[in-house]
Design a protein around this nucleic acid. Structure first.
Lengths: 350, 350
DNA sequence: TCTTTTTGCGTAAGCGCTTACGCATAAGAT
DNA sequence: ATCTTATGCGTAAGCGCTTACGCAAAAAGA
């Protein structure tokens, strides 16, 4: 079989060299070739040298697919995100990529953007992955259950699936929003604080809103009608939201945007309406995306350590991959307030 | 063998169901199962139904790896980028993803960020891909040659490898920069125009610089010493570059940043130095990333259709994958100037 | 009714690797 | 010099699929 295969292959024109062809040329068996490429100890230096030499000469490199099949592993992870437009998610990816690379795993990125979630998860099943990191949306649960059923390890970012035990990492959204609101109330004595909320489909939105409301309540402040407006976590929705707020008969003294992108839009809107920030109106965000310090004024926001979340998620995933018996962990990342200028604090850091 | 394998598998606890197990339970041969899952015409509706039913019941889904091996294709593409922090690249990815999804391909994203290029390309060889899109940097050539040697189809984004025939798509950087400079000179009569250049390693940088210089020359304007400063295509380097420029004994009347991120940094710097934009100084960018219209003032820039580039690149790749004899194409994307406010033009679009 | 064609399915040989076994030969121990 | 043990390598059986080939039964044609 060995010889026949080698001959057969040699007969073809552009066929990629296989382990059979290499073995034949190097005058060894395919087992030896395999051992050379896998760093097996019981192989002589001389043989190894010869194999690598011939491999180089014929531009051989082992077929990853065949390897995957024989090894029953792909060394590949996937990360599922709503989209990659938001710096929040790109930072997440950077974190995830950083640790998957350091542990020699490949990372596939999937976005729901131009595909409904259901199809995405179906496609996920047709690819070779060892595990998945899923950035939760409220609708994600049902699909993730499919993964669970197929016994594909996964970790949820920012959410939990009821009735399912699994790894998760999430920022402490509620506390972050609470502290930020508290800062505006207690440290700046702003009386009227509006909130631009993110989309319902994103789990973060609700948690941040809750923190904001809780802080108002705890400090005896009423929630005025029309002071919580809906946004989409995008610049344009932040812009629109702020315009609406500023068009109110009695505009707020501060705007708390549910994320930094909306804060950026809100700042544009306020500037366009002739408001000085933070003198006339304070605007703060949430996420602390890298560019928020390059805004003028520099954005006061809540740091959720996007990079760290991505990194932690992959770390957990790889840990349970290596040790399936390992108990699931629920990692809650602290979300500290980062004071810059847009709230009225005066530090200057660039 | 069939029966033995099935029994063997059944004996294990958590082993994923294989085609053998499914075939046994459904009372057919593995060939029939395979045919059912591949939409083969010569199979009865009844049998197919039964197979899918049992598959559903035992949560079977065919192993992608085994399929890949048998089919000698992976339906997976890779895209190699310097990083994903820049919206330019995320748009590129969006474009690439959009067409690869529509043609039922998977897309792997690779960044050089925390890994030197050489390792990245080595890792690329250990994954299962049918082709690669490479966003060129000046150092990329040598590595891409390796791909060529392994007969892996690829297309270059923004650059060409000398001595190698291949597909490429690139923006018309030089013409875009030329037109933008011309706009500042001819339409606004700005006499002193500085340029913040991108890093040498990125091919775009040089081309844009060339266009800028050419326009100055064509309009009889001298290039003043110190008016071309080096940047890194990041906000912070744009900030620093602008600061340097504004600290000059005779600061420029306009700053042309080599990309939008640097323009954002430059705007911050100018604002911080008390300059009004565009009244005191005009600042323009390059790329037209989505958020540039949410800057205040809205950024005048050059549109390079990042999304379109990514899409076109994948399209070309898939085309040569489907038809290897197809001649290589060199697609040059137009790079029109987009007039907004930061140059002094007054349109208001949001 | 007797071909001929079509339909539905099974058998077995791959796809290109890994690895358990096992067998010489070389090295070490006694 | 003899008996272990270690070393280097080959044989062959998988990994979980696809598919060419072939055969029986059903459908169509005569």
């Amino acid at each position: 079989m060995n010889a026949r295969q080698a001959e057969f292959h040699a007969g073809h024109r552009f066929m990629k060299p296989t382990i059979y062809m290499l073995a034949q040329k190097a005058g060894v068996s395919i087992a030896t070739v395999s051992r050379a490429f896998n760093g097996h100890p019981r192989i002589s230096g001389e043989t190894k040298r010869r194999i690598f030499e011939t491999a180089e000469a014929m531009a051989y490199s082992p077929s990853p697919t065949a390897r995957n099949l024989a090894n029953r592993t792909t060394e590949t992870l996937a990360i599922v995100l709503p989209h990659i437009t938001d710096p929040f998610f790109t930072e997440l990816i950077r974190g995830a990529e950083s640790v998957s690379k350091s542990r020699a795993y490949h990372l596939l990125i999937y976005t729901c953007e131009d595909m409904d979630e259901q199809n995405l998860f179906l496609q996920l099943l047709t690819t070779r992955i060892d595990g998945v990191v899923v950035a939760a949306r409220s609708s994600t649960g049902q699909y993730v259950k499919r993964l669970a059923r197929q016994n594909i390890p996964f970790v949820m970012l920012g959410g939990a699936i009821p009735g399912l035990h699994h790894n998760k990492v999430r920022p402490d959204n509620q506390s972050g929003a609470y502290q930020m609101t508290r800062h505006l109330i207690v440290d700046h004595h702003y009386g009227e604080i509006a909130f631009i909320c993110g989309p319902e489909a994103q789990i973060h939105s609700g948690e941040r809103l809750t923190g904001y409301l809780q802080a108002l309540r705890d400090h005896g402040m009423a929630v005025r009608d029309g002071w919580v407006v809906a946004g989409e976590f995008t610049e344009s929705s932040g812009f629109a939201g702020a315009k609406a707020l500023l068009g109110l008969p009695r505009p707020p003294r501060a705007i708390f945007a549910g994320n930094d992108r909306m804060a950026i839009g809100a700042i544009s809107a306020a500037a366009e309406c002739g408001y000085a920030i933070p003198k006339d109106i304070a605007i703060v965000g949430f996420d602390d995306v890298p560019s928020s310090r390059y805004l003028r004024p520099a954005l006061t926001t809540v740091n959720v350590n996007c990079f760290g979340q991505g990194a932690a998620a992959v770390e957990q995933l790889l840990d349970t991959l290596e040790n399936p018996e390992r108990p699931y962990v629920d990692l809650i990342m602290p979300a500290p307030v980062v004071l810059r200028n847009s709230c009225g604090c005066l530090e200057r850091e660039t």
